[in-house]
Structures are given as C-alpha cells and as structure tokens.
Design a protein around this nucleic acid. Structure first.
Length: 623
DNA sequence: CTAGGGTTAG
C-alpha cells in the first residue's frame, strides 16, 4: 500500500517520539518503531536515531544497532559516540576502536565525550600503544582540563601503565571529584596484584582517608582491595565502619565483604552481612551468588552453599566452578564429579578452573586413577592446555599417593619451568612418605627458587643431620644465618561474635591467656591419659630441634582450640582457620580432643577442611 | 550522550 510520507510526518513524529521517550518492553517493539521511522521518511533524523540506538544497546543488540547506524546517511557526533559507548558497554572493545578509526576517516575528531569510552576500551584491551596515541590526541584536542577524560587516563595508566604515570595524571586534575579519587585508589589496588600488597593498601588507605567525599564505590573498592590483597581483617573493619556510618552496602561491597569472610572463615560475619541484602539479589546475580557460595564453602557450611547454588537462577561457569571447588575442598568429591557431568548437560564448557577443582578433589580423596583421567582428558577432549597449577595438583595427587617417582618425572617432563608450588607439592609427598633422599633434591631446587625462605634451609639441614652428614648440616645453617633469614610465622584464628581472635605459636598476648594455658594443661593430662604421645620425629618438619616438644604443645591451632573450648557453649561447633597446613601432631591431638570433649571441631588450613568428630577426621588422615 | 567498583583459581 502506497503511503504519502510527508503529510503524515507530524503525527508519526509525535508517536515515535512518545514511544522513544517511554522506552520499549521488547526488541520487537523497538524494531516496529524503527520500521515506522523508515517508512515515515524520518529515518535520517539523527536526534531520533540516537535515541533509538541507545535503546537498542539496552536490549543487548549491538548487531542491530550497527544496522541502524549503517543506514544513516550523515551520522553526527552524537551517533558516533553512542555507537562507541554502546559497543564498549557490551565488551566489544575491538569494534569500538574500529568505529573510532572509521569516525576519523569520515573527518570527525573525537570530543570530550568520545574519549572516556575510548579510553575504557583501550584499558580493557590493555593496549598501551593505542593508549599513548589517545593521550596525545587528548592533549592536541585541548581536553586536558576535562575531569572525565583525565579520569579515564588515570584508569588507563593504572591498569596497563604504572602507578607513577597514573599519579602524574591524577595530580594534574584541577577539580578532582569522588570518581577521580576512587580511580586512583583502584589504581593502587590494581597494582597490588604485582607488588607488595601491604604497602599498596597503605597508600590506597591514605588516599581514602584524605579524600574529601566518599561514596559507596569508594568504600566497596577499598573493602574489595583489602580482601583481595591479603588483608581480609581490614576489609571487615572497614565494612563495619561503613555500616556504623549508616551506609547501606550495595552488591559490590557485599561481594567484597563476603570474599573477606571466605578467606577468614568468618561464618557469623558472613551470614550477618548477607542478611543486609535480600536473598533474591544473591539468586539473580551470579557474581553475588558465587561470593555467597564460596563464603559458605570456605567456612565449612557446604549444605548452605549447596542451597544457594540450587536456588540461583542463572548459573554461569564461575558459579559451577565455585561450587565444585567448595565440594572438593570439603571432601565431597563424588558430588563434585556429579556437578561436572551436570555442567556439561547444562550446555556449559568446562575451563581450566573446573579441572583445578576436580584435580584438587581427587588429590584430597586419593583418587589417582580418576585424577589421571581428568588430567589427560583436558587436552584430548576439551582442548584445554594444563597450566602450571594443574601440574601442581597432579604432583600433589601422585605425591600423596606415594607415587613419588611418577610425580618427579611429571615435573621433569612438563612444558614449563617448575615453580615453588610444584616443588612444594612434591616435598609434601616426600614428607608424608618419609623419602629424605628425594626431599634433599627438592629442597635444593626450592632454595634456588626462594633463597629467602627459611623453612627450606631448616629442612635440608635436618635431613643432613639425620644422615649424620654433620658438616653439610652445619654449612646450611651457616648459609641461612648469614642471610639473616626469618621464618614466616604460622598463625591460627577463630571467630567469636563477629570478632576474629588471632594466635601465634606460644602466644601469650590474648587477654584470656592464663585461662587458655590452664585449659591446655588440663587437655594435655587427659590426652596423655588417653594414650597420646607427642610426635617429635620431624626430620621433614620445619621445627627447631630443642623446642620441638614445647612448640608442639603450644602450636597456634592448639591455642585457638583451647580458647574456643572455654569461650563457647558445650555443644557449639568450633571453627578454626590456619594460614599454613595443620601439623601432624596437632591433627592427632585434635582427633582425641574431639572424642574427649564430645565437640565437633572444624579446622580449615591452606589446603582443605578437617572435620574432627568423635575421634576421627573427615580427611581420613590423608592430607 | 561522559569517568571509578565484583565472584572461583592464583
């Protein structure tokens, strides 16, 4: 049917404008309006087209947006900017940059609105070459004064340049605002991934304390930064402070605090924090759900983790991986295997992390054959190349099972250079199976890779002593002392009423120290009566000879346990977290203590969970 | 029409 376009324009224009202002409920509705625009001859009205484009990106249809754009005869700056912004918002960074080049070919110069989008694309692409060019263009175009543009540059340098460059741009911003302040904080935090985290967080904190105005983004960035950079207690402190200042956490702050709780094993805090939000937020947002699952799993409450997992509406691969990793750590390997099968049925493809969870689960359960099968299937079925972490898991698996030669030859044949994690895994195997000869070789590798780590020297010298090679033993001691090497202290902590109590070996600084030691004395009597003898044969344990028995009695996990026993009600479960692996002597003592006291004790070490109930442990003494 | 923030594994 032929329609005369012109006379209809005023009414159609009104309708289309109304529709555009109102927004659309579906992409089809949008396409319908686009059709009307085309038929009415208004399809070259850039103002209307721009509104249409923005809506199209809202519906996640960058391809359709492109079609609209290419039908436009004379796109103006607004349209170019909207396209670039839209593509960036859909993570199509390469395409955004291509659009930028076409734009310049068409004779348009980027303006102050173009640069922030472009800089973001550039940042995400980690393309510093393009970044430098953009910086030059910014200066040439005279957009140097613009806070928005400058903040984009701060982010660029922070992510793919260096903090120094980021600082230079930041200092130069004439009128800084919350966003630019937060950008430089994020820059420090980002940098913490490569450098000494503690210093970096101190720098970030200095800026945070100094900034004139903070908003939820600044708070959650700091919280997340603490959590991710090994300072989860500071993350909690800051979260509490934010709460005291009556700022409601949003999903980013929530993810940050849950991640901190997961690292600390602080279940009560985690549950309290999660209740500050509606449960639906966790079920509908995969990132939040993952954080909650991980928190529950790492705090040993796997049932709750599973419940969250079941209720989540959209489960992406990360959600599955977190669940599987939690199951593996908790010793529920069979469930992790089932998850793996279910994941594929749900149309997802496993990635490297999926296999790390599986291999870690096999390792804890001693399932050598299954582990080998998964490991070799990575390449042959899924075309995933094992990384050094996968090799580390395999060495761990084989080493625990006593297949030390196979583990060693795996290291020698792997396509990359072994790191300390891999050698460390083999060393654990040597320790478990009392192979001092191989351990000697491993320790030499470790000393080469980390000459600052005292433990390696102590162990090697112990081995020499055990083999009566006194001169060698003495040489190693001298070498170590000459370098002024210090030990990494082991510590354990326990959470009570939202407060984290920390203990070092032989710690006497806790306010209840007297009672704790009294309790330990009482326990020791009962233990010895029950037939416990301290294990002091520790050639392959990093314990100084003369202090062995003394130290064993006051290991950090024992102090935390004694404190837990006197500070909780008789039937409460005691949850302890340790920054290193739980020691063999403590493990034996804890089993007996769980029987003597009738308590359930859960210890999370760097590696796995140990649930002590009625005299036995969930790891079956295999860890 | 603009800039800053997140999860598993390390």
């Amino acid at each position: 049917m032929y329609r005369q376009a012109f006379p209809m324009v005023p009414t159609v224009l009104k309708e289309i404008k109304a529709a555009l202002f109102q927004g659309f409920n579906s992409l089809n509705q949008l396409k319908h309006i686009h059709g009307r625009l085309l038929r009415s001859g208004l399809n070259q009205n850039n103002y209307l087209l721009n509104m249409l484009l923005i809506s199209t990106f809202k519906f996640s249809s960058p391809n359709y947006a492109e079609r609209i754009f290419y039908q436009t005869q004379a796109p103006n700056m607004f349209l170019w900017n909207t396209m670039i912004r839209g593509l960036v918002s859909k993570d199509r960074f390469d395409q955004a940059v291509e659009f930028f080049y076409s734009m310049r070919e068409e004779g348009f110069l980027p303006n102050n609105f173009t640069f922030p989008f472009l800089l973001k694309a550039c940042t995400r692409l980690l393309d510093m070459e393009l970044g430098s060019k953009l910086h030059t263009l910014v200066v040439k175009g005279g957009f140097d004064y613009d806070v928005f543009v400058k903040t984009g540059l701060v982010c660029l340098y922070a992510k793919c340049g260096g903090v120094k460059d980021a600082e230079k741009v930041f200092d130069d911003i004439p009128e800084k605002n919350v966003v630019s302040w937060t950008a430089i904080i994020s820059g420090y935090i980002e940098f913490g991934r490569f450098r000494e985290a503690i210093d970096i967080m101190e720098m970030a904190r200095a800026v945070f304390d100094e900034m004139p105005e903070k908003d939820i983004v600044s708070w959650s960035s700091m919280i997340q930064g603490y959590a991710a950079n090994g300072l989860p207690r500071d993350a909690l402190d800051l979260f509490y402070q934010m709460h005291r200042e009556n700022l409601r956490p949003d999903c980013y702050a929530m993810v940050g605090v849950l991640s901190a709780c997961a690292r600390l094993g602080a279940l009560d805090v985690g549950e309290w924090a999660s209740r500050l939000m509606g449960m639906n937020d966790f079920f509908s947002n995969p990132v939040m759900g993952t954080a909650l699952i991980d928190m529950y799993a790492k705090c040993g409450k796997i049932v709750s983790a599973w419940e969250v997992f079941l209720q989540m509406k959209k489960k992406d691969l990360v959600v599955w991986n977190a669940m599987m990793s939690g199951l593996s750590m908790g010793g529920h390997v069979g469930s992790a295997f089932s998850c793996f099968a279910a994941l594929e049925k749900n149309g997802l493809r496993p990635d490297g992390n999926t296999f790390l969870s599986l291999l870690c689960g096999c390792s804890h359960a001693g399932l050598v054959a299954e582990g080998r099968r998964y490991f070799y299937s990575m390449n042959s079925i899924y075309s995933i190349y094992p990384t050094i972490e996968h090799y580390g898991c395999m060495v761990d698996l084989l080493g625990r099972a006593g297949l030390l030669d196979e583990a060693h030859s795996l290291i020698q044949n792997m396509p990359m250079k072994a790191n300390t994690v891999v050698w460390g895994a083999l060393l654990s195997g040597c320790r478990l199976h009392r192979d001092t000869q191989l351990a000697e070789h491993v320790l030499k590798q470790l000393i080469e890779l980390e000459p600052w780590n005292s433990g390696n020297y102590v162990l090697l010298s112990n081995i020499y002593s055990a083999n009566k090679k006194w001169a060698d033993s003495e040489k190693i001691r001298a070498l170590m002392n000459g370098k002024g090497i210090q030990k990494v202290p082991a510590y354990s902590w326990i959470e009570l009423d939202g407060v984290v109590h920390e203990f070092l070996v032989g710690d006497t600084t806790h306010p209840m120290s007297d009672k704790i030691y009294a309790k330990l004395g009482e326990l020791d009597k009962k233990l010895r009566a029950a037939g416990y003898v301290p294990i002091t044969d520790f050639v392959l344990f990093d314990v100084e000879e003369e202090e062995k028995e003394y130290v064993l009695g006051y290991h950090s996990e024992k102090l935390a346990l004694a404190f837990g026993l006197i500070s909780t009600r008789p039937n409460d479960v005691i949850r302890i977290t340790k920054n290193l692996r739980v020691c063999g002597d403590c493990h034996m003592a804890f089993k007996l203590i769980s029987k003597i006291t009738g308590r359930e004790i859960i210890v999370r070490d760097t590696n796995r969970f140990h649930c002590f109930i009625d005299g036995s442990c969930s790891c079956n003494d295999y860890w």
